[in-house]
Design a protein around this nucleic acid. Structure first.
Lengths: 401, 401
DNA sequence: TCACTTATAATAAGTATTGAAATAAGGGGG
DNA sequence: CCCCCTTATTTCAATACTTATTATAAGTGA
């Protein structure tokens, strides 16, 4: 974000004010001034602009302590709409959000097979978006853009082309353009773990922290690292590939071909396998198997508890490594595997992290669970165009003018 | 860096211009304009200011292609001076640099024992600084500040107090203030690996890259992560503690008390031990032992080569993990252990990293060796006050006015 | 000497921020 | 019911900075 001219400055300040209003349920001019470190005069100017643009409105007022009442400000929900899509193994969820990031509508398009090719996914996304636009014609006027949460590596090269490597779905490399085709919406994409981290950063458990780690445990093991208030992306936006970091020489072979990957220990499939290896249920449906594992453990089943303990220990090691490397204030654990795990073993996990990490960074970090389930992947994806909209790099469609 | 007012803007642009002139050997107005993305008018204004302040000067000109010759600009070396200190196990090196970051003078104060307490180090630093000031009275006029490169964790809490945890020296926790006392210079401190990374970022192999990893291998295993052009610090500035990340369950016990730490495999002591365990030399002086190991390996000694191979492999695993997590463009390896290792096994290390990391991020990364040896720790430390000086958060002493 | 280039400098125009002063909106006491 | 007090917002003058634009400097080649 280059701020070298006076208009960049205005842009930045406008963005800060808009962001502040969007993320607060209710804002006031002086509150914004304090939060954005701006004078009341500047806030007045910017808010006046935003009201003129139809993005913000005043709604009533609340009493001040003995003076002129404070005007309440809020975003105009209909001011802009954003689409977010969660591309998963079972299907594609497409959702529309208004400017308050309230979900307006959603559709789910099931995929026939567990690993449908990009063509099917493309069709499902296009179909889902079309269905939403048809069912909600009023959004058309202010539909700004779309974000995709994808499994696997989403990599934006120096050439500006976004490429998707969804190895877990068995896809070949696909460019984002290939995956979109029909759609005329400006579209952004990111790895699902990163979009979930973005959602937690804006509205969930990572809110307010400058440095957090959002670990997403499911079939895959992902992490979104928040550093300096933004999601860490690295040179080509593929930073945060935690699942295939090695935690053991040799070790079990992972789906990536490597050995000793963290995912080969605590990924959904691995946990289910570890359980069935010691006599647990052995089913096709990993999610169901793991869920039963947790249920058994809760019921006091020793074997199940040992598997859960072991998982906790390895997760603790993995998180401790991240604590040493990133020195976060907060660790947020989520995902369909992570949420029940942390519910059941929060204290133990906390102890394990502190045991395995260096004491200094470990002392600074707080452990918590995600506020959202994986259903927030689409919300986080929709935050991608929102961020561009706020930053001013994405505008309302012509028709709005 | 909050840029919300017009003067912040000026400050930022001034900083960008000054930084550009300091890091280039020779600058021109239009070159600066291009590099900093500013108009020629603005550059003229800012440069005029800098010349008036005595930080920059014009020196001659070079022909342009058929028009008015281009004025050469350079920093005035005597415009400001910075002290950098490298606190090592054997002694304290204190150096003074001028504004071109050319070393003006240096002193070394030996520490009696390998792990002298903070009191001795404090005395050595104070003595070194005093000696330099006495020997170079002309620097006094423009002595801006000091930076310390320290072993161990340097942690700046939310209270703003900088604390040093130099476990490898057997120190208790010490605050930076304790460590300074007598000195009246504004002082900053950072972990030695991070200051070396800073030096490599400004003048060495990490120059020009936005995202790099600078791995420093010696007795300890440290890394400075450069993300978005700046050294990653995390919540309390202790990010980058790579040496004690776990790469193996169980595994050998490390000096930190943990097991399976990377440092317990490829730290200087561990490498020496691995060698002596298979019949290599067994000496007190780790550095000499390791240096002999490399010499033997170069001579074709099979045992030595096996130890070096094994070290390469483990280092490759460790770096691959960082590649997955940070998605850097460049990996820079240095330190008294790292430099000879990469000289001898560059290809093999490269192959190993690519084998163990995910292919996408691995394809994007280039491996190289540090331009500087560990002697640049003091240079990097001196860059801390330089950065503050450039950013305008640190000024020339009163006497200069 | 006279176009013609290219690099800087000077100037004009426009815009943003701030801080002070003005104004708006209520509360409460006499 | 009027006046004073408090607090929130707006208005406005002062200031500072960037960008164009225009002028000037300093050479080249004919």
């Amino acid at each position: 974000m280059r701020t070298s001219t006076v208009s960049d400055l205005r842009q930045n300040n406008r963005a800060a004010v808009l962001r502040s209003i969007v993320s607060a349920v209710e804002a006031t001019r002086s509150g914004i001034a304090a939060q954005c470190d701006l004078s009341s005069g500047s806030v007045t100017n910017i808010v006046t602009d935003l009201i003129a643009e139809g993005l913000v409105r005043e709604f009533g007022s609340k009493p001040s302590s003995g003076g002129r009442p404070i005007a309440r400000l809020s975003v105009v929900p209909e001011g802009a709409y954003f689409v977010g899509a969660d591309v998963g193994e079972l299907g594609v969820t497409v959702e529309v959000f208004d400017l308050t990031m309230t979900r307006v509508d959603r559709v789910f398009r099931k995929l026939r097979t567990r690993s449908s090719g990009p063509r099917r996914v493309k069709a499902a996304v296009a179909d889902g978006v079309a269905a939403l636009r048809k069912a909600n014609p009023h959004i058309e006027r202010a539909l700004v853009g779309m974000g995709l949460g994808l499994p696997g590596i989403v990599d934006t090269g120096t050439d500006g082309v976004t490429r998707v490597y969804a190895q877990s779905l068995g896809w070949p490399m696909v460019t984002l353009d290939d995956l979109l085709a029909g759609t005329d919406l400006p579209t952004f994409a990111d790895n699902g773990a990163k979009t979930l981290a973005t959602a937690e950063l804006w509205y969930g458990s990572a809110q307010g922290a400058e440095h957090s780690i959002v670990a997403l445990l499911g079939r895959g093991i992902g992490v979104g690292v928040i550093s300096g208030g933004r999601v860490l992306r690295g040179a080509s936006s593929s930073a945060g590939e935690w699942g295939h970091t090695k935690v053991s020489f040799g070790g079990p072979t992972c789906s990536c071909g490597g050995r000793g990957c963290l995912e080969a220990y605590i990924g959904g499939v691995a946990v289910a396998q570890r359980w069935s290896a010691v006599g647990g249920r052995d089913g096709d449906d990993v999610e169901a198997t793991v869920s039963e594992l947790f249920a058994r453990a809760a019921d006091g089943d020793d074997t199940a508890n040992r598997v859960v303990d072991e998982t906790t220990e390895i997760l603790g090691l993995g998180l401790a490594n991240l604590v040493n490397l990133f020195n976060p204030e907060r660790i947020v654990v989520g995902g369909w595997l992570g949420l029940p795990l942390i519910d059941m073993r929060r204290r133990e996990l906390d102890v394990e992290i502190r045991r395995q990490a260096l004491s200094r960074p470990a002392e600074q970090v707080a452990l918590s669970s995600c506020r959202f389930g994986t259903d927030a992947v689409a919300l986080g994806a929709a935050l991608l165009p929102l961020e561009h909209f706020i930053a001013g790099t994405l505008e309302l469609p012509e028709s709005a003018a």
